[in-house]
Design a protein around this nucleic acid. Structure first.
Length: 270
DNA sequence: TGCCAGGGCGCCG
DNA sequence: CGGCGCCATGGC
């Protein structure tokens, strides 16, 4: 399947830290697992070629119905964001599976992205369904609930094994993420915070990357640093940063956050 | 070799 | 509420 796309850069998306299952083939080609499918994406400028999933699913997953130029216009008068948006012009907020995103971001706590990726792959290989070759679907709640504490630790989860162990059992027992996702942002957040291993930052990531809560503004160490450096000029508490950002950036604060996250890490890299 | 990582939990004031 | 020590492990 071939599509013309705008504000879309598969490399930026795959490296943006919102997803952990995409693997680089070369500079313009990536392979990832979406649900029970393996999807290959090759991009040359504005043209993408993909297989493995339907066009409808592709458009849904990559948020293609949203006009990102409109969002960028909304933020263009902010000099910091203007530069960040120029840097990560092809970033999009993915529409990922709720359970996979929830578990992945529990694992992300006090962790680094390469290791998070390894852990998510290990969980998939150990407890998910085989798709093809070396690709495995992320386990369902029931499948993951079969893993023992030691098996989870063996997937590289470290002390987070207990968080995953407890939380996936609650969800396998009937807690409905679909219902939680229907709640308005603040109530949704409150429900997510009841799970073990989910604090403010992780809850915001789950809402932003799998529940279409674009006003959620996750504050991690990178966002804290760039906000303190470019907006405050001094140290601020996590709560204060989140409050300020949601006020300043409004209903798409989460998208602004993702531009900032990509930008600060891109600068760090060179 | 140490420092750090898309933080959360438990406890304390 | 806000601050603090602790937590496993591997990437760099």
């Amino acid at each position: 399947m071939r599509l013309k796309v705008d504000h879309f850069d598969i490399a930026q998306i795959a490296e943006s830290g919102e997803c952990f299952r995409w693997r680089k083939i070369d500079d313009c080609e990536y392979v990832g697992v979406i649900g029970n499918s393996v999807c290959r994406v090759k991009q040359c400028d504005n043209m993408v070629e993909f297989d493995g999933i339907s066009e409808t699913e592709f458009r849904r997953y990559f948020d293609l119905e949203r006009d990102y130029s409109e969002i960028q216009k909304y933020y263009e008068k902010d000099n910091v964001l203007a530069e960040a948006m120029w840097c990560g012009n092809g970033i999009r907020i993915l529409n990922q599976d709720k359970f996979e995103t929830l578990i992945s971001f529990i694992i992300s706590a006090n962790n680094n992205i390469p290791r998070i990726k390894k852990s998510v792959e290990a969980l998939s290989k150990g407890f998910g369904k085989h798709i093809e070759d070396e690709f495995y679907a992320f386990p369902t709640p029931g499948e993951l609930a079969r893993a023992s504490l030691d098996e989870l630790k063996a997937c590289g989860l470290g002390y987070r094994n207990q968080y995953v162990y407890k939380t996936c059992r609650e969800i396998a027992a009937g807690k409905d993420l679909g219902q939680i996702a229907k709640l308005p942002t603040e109530l949704c957040r409150k429900e997510l915070l009841k799970f073990t291993g989910i604090g403010p930052k992780v809850a915001d990531c789950i809402m932003l990357f799998s529940m279409q809560k674009y006003d959620a503004f996750p504050v991690d160490v990178w966002i804290k640093r760039i906000m303190e450096s470019l907006y405050f000029g001094e140290e601020r508490s996590l709560n204060e940063i989140a409050r300020y950002a949601k006020e300043k950036f409004g209903e798409y604060a989460g998208i602004a956050q993702q531009y900032l996250f990509f930008y600060v890490r891109e600068k760090e890299l060179k």
